[in-house]
Structure formats: C-alpha cells, structure tokens
Write a protein that binds this DNA or RNA. Sequence first.
DNA 1: AGCCAACCGGAGCTTTTCCTCCAGATAGGG
DNA 2: CCCTATCTGGAGGAAAAGCTCCGGTTGGCT
Lengths: 206, 206
Amino acid sequence: MFRMTGLRADARRNREKILAAARELFREQGTAVALDDIARRAGVGIGTLYRRFPDRDALILDVALEGFETVLAVVEAARAGGGGAAAVLDETFRRVVEQRERLVMPLVGGPVVRDPRVRKLQRAILGALEEVLAEGRGEGVLRADITAFDLVGAAAMACRPMPHLPREAAGALAARHVAVYLHGLRPHGAPALPDMVDPGGYLGLG
Amino acid sequence: MFRMTGLRADARRNREKILAAARELFREQGTAVALDDIARRAGVGIGTLYRRFPDRDALILDVALEGFETVLAVVEAARAGGGGAAAVLDETFRRVVEQRERLVMPLVGGPVVRDPRVRKLQRAILGALEEVLAEGRGEGVLRADITAFDLVGAAAMACRPMPHLPREAAGALAARHVAVYLHGLRPHGAPALPDMVDPGGYLGLG
DNA sequence: AGCCAACCGGAGCTTTTCCTCCAGATAGGG
DNA sequence: CCCTATCTGGAGGAAAAGCTCCGGTTGGCT
C-alpha cells in the first residue's frame, strides 16, 4: 500500500487534527497560546501532541511549512493555468484568499526564519512570482516597480487573521481588497511608489 | 496644575509603558502572551500591571481603545487638512501606516467587541469615512462600490504585524501596499468587486 | 485471524504564570 | 520642606501550563 509518510494512518490523522487546531488558535490568539488548548481543540491527548511535535517551535515550524507549501502550490497551479501575467496574478490571489485560513505562517522571528526548508520554499515562491512579473511587464499590464516581495506582502496582508469577524465577512473583505489591489497594479496613471527596503530574509503570511 | 487624568505622574508614566509593551507583545506573540512578560518588558513590577489593569481583558480593551482613538484622530486630521477626497484618503492611509505599530486592536472576539466605547469609536470612524467616500464619488475620483468597511479593512491589513521583518522593511512594504491600493480605488477601468458580506459588528486593526 | 510494532491518552510531576497583598518609596500640595 | 494620599515592586500561595511516562489500544502485515 502507498504510504503518504512513514506514519500510521491514525497517527497521520491526528497530526492533521493538531495542525488544524494550531492554525486556528495561532490565528485567534497568537503563537503564545497554550499547547493544552491546541490538544483539546484537536480532540487528542496532550501526549499525542508532544510525541509529534517535541516543542512549541516544532509545531510553529510545521504550520509555517505547510503554509509555504500551499502558497507555492497555488502560484504554480495559477501559472500552469496559463493566460497572461495579469490572469495568473488574478488566479493566484483568488486562491490565496480562498485558502487564507490554511496560510498561517506565524511570523515569529525565531527558528522558523532560519529553517532551510522554509528558506527554500520562500526562494521558490519569490522566483516564480518574479517570472510572472517579468512577463507582465513585457505585456505592459503591470507597473514596472512592483517586486515579488510586494506581492508576497500583499498576500500576507490579505490573509490577516480577523477572528472577530464572521468568517464570510472576513473572506469577502479579503477578496474585495485583493480585487482593488490587483487593479492598482496596472501601470496606467500610477504614481511612484515609496522606496523598497530590503527585507533581509524571511517572508511570512497570515 | 493641569491633570491629564486622575493618575499621579509616575502612575501615568507606568501606564503608558505597560500599554506600549503590551502593544509590542500582542503584535509579536498574540494576546495570549504572559502578563509577566509584559510587565518585564515595560520595566515595572507585576503588581503595577495588575493594579492598573485588573485582568487580561481590561488590558486588551485599553490597547484597543487607544488604537481606535488614534485611527479616529488620523481620519479627522486628514479631513481637516482639506483637499479632495483622494487627498484625504492619501493622507489618512499615510498616517495609518506611519502609526501602524500603535494601531493594535487585538481582534479578539471577546469583551472588546461589546464595549460601548469601542462601538462608538467604530461608528465615528465609519461615519467619517463614509462622508469622505460620498465626496469622492461626487468628484468622480473613487469607484462607487467601495464601502467604509472596505477602507477600515484595508487599514487593518496594511497594519498587519510582521515581527519577522526589520521594522523599516515592514514599514516600506505597508507604505507601498497602500499606494497600490489607493491607486486601485480609482474608477477608471475597474472590474466589479465581489459582494460585500455584513460584518455584523466589530472592526479591528493590527 | 493473529500478532506486534506503533500509537494513544491522560495521570502526575515540574515549571511557569496568575494574582493578591503590604512594607516601603514618591509625587506634589500647602 | 514636610506630610500624606497615592503609588511601587516583588514575595508568595494558588492555579495553570509544560512535559514525561507507561498501561492499554489499534492499524496493518502475514
């Protein structure tokens, strides 16, 4: 039989439940949330959580990794879908908003920032977006001074947790925001942007 | 002598230090952060924190209140500055980004949402923005389907904490994002927006 | 079906956080 | 400068969270 990972089926299921609960609670209360609460919301024992994630940072890291993987998959799927650069960006942001509750990249200035797998995913995401931008500039549908970093930042902002709002309202807000932002990316009559500052490394989302 | 509040000078100073530390830590780690940590970062004893803020919710509420007050002041100052609606929005968002580290409205679906002072400030902010929008539509410089709620949401997104980035990089990112967003608010060639969903109450930022 | 390596849950010990209380310090009016 | 109402910091008991360990359960191979 095909094994997705080296884990047994029940273990894999529980791992997913824990990650889902962690995503929710990180978004609602931040990464300082009690691990007991995460286990409780996941419906597993605390021992199960600690077996799979030796400490808080390991859990944060895995949540972040899945988030970055999802983003990369979204960008690649949008590119594979074809169309011009504008269409690719539309599709990318549409899917980012759709999956924003999964895109929890806890934004912690800790071990996550230094993890090589995270950095590799970041490079892949930025690289793919840069290619899209290059195309778009060639087609004249995108202003020239936008960087891939701007786009990742925009995605991060649109994915901002808003746990005080009903889910659909938060989703609608994000979708509308992104629509305006994308429209603002067009070169026609665009005023100059403030200077970029080197981010020096890690990019994080919601 | 003029008393800003009923507090003694040292008490007022410490209150500010505690709020500043709380803002930082809420942004970095979320509202579940240990209150001891907040007192330590503020450089005051834990007793001082508890005397001023009887529990976590009181602290969260006061941080939120100051944030909403700041936003309202920003909007009103921008309107007082004059110019057309577009200029008012430019100025509003410029200052929001400038003060984004102070605009911590913890986004917790708890007591904050129900506090009457918070709701009053929200109404004032939304009301002021609606007037600006009405002007802007009259002048033809703003697309007609944008709501005040969209604008508050945009501000919240731009204020998103990004503690993993150097401060200047995060600021530049926010400023550039807002510039693109504002450009996207112009009606020329704008595609239709997704439908709005009623937020049902509380609005929160950063 | 039968077996066993892998996994589960939570009791329970340790560490941290919560919160109260009060002896000593200080602002600021007279 | 002195007095006192107000404020401070941190010790310390209670409560919660962090973390480990092991008896019992279960998936999945044969």
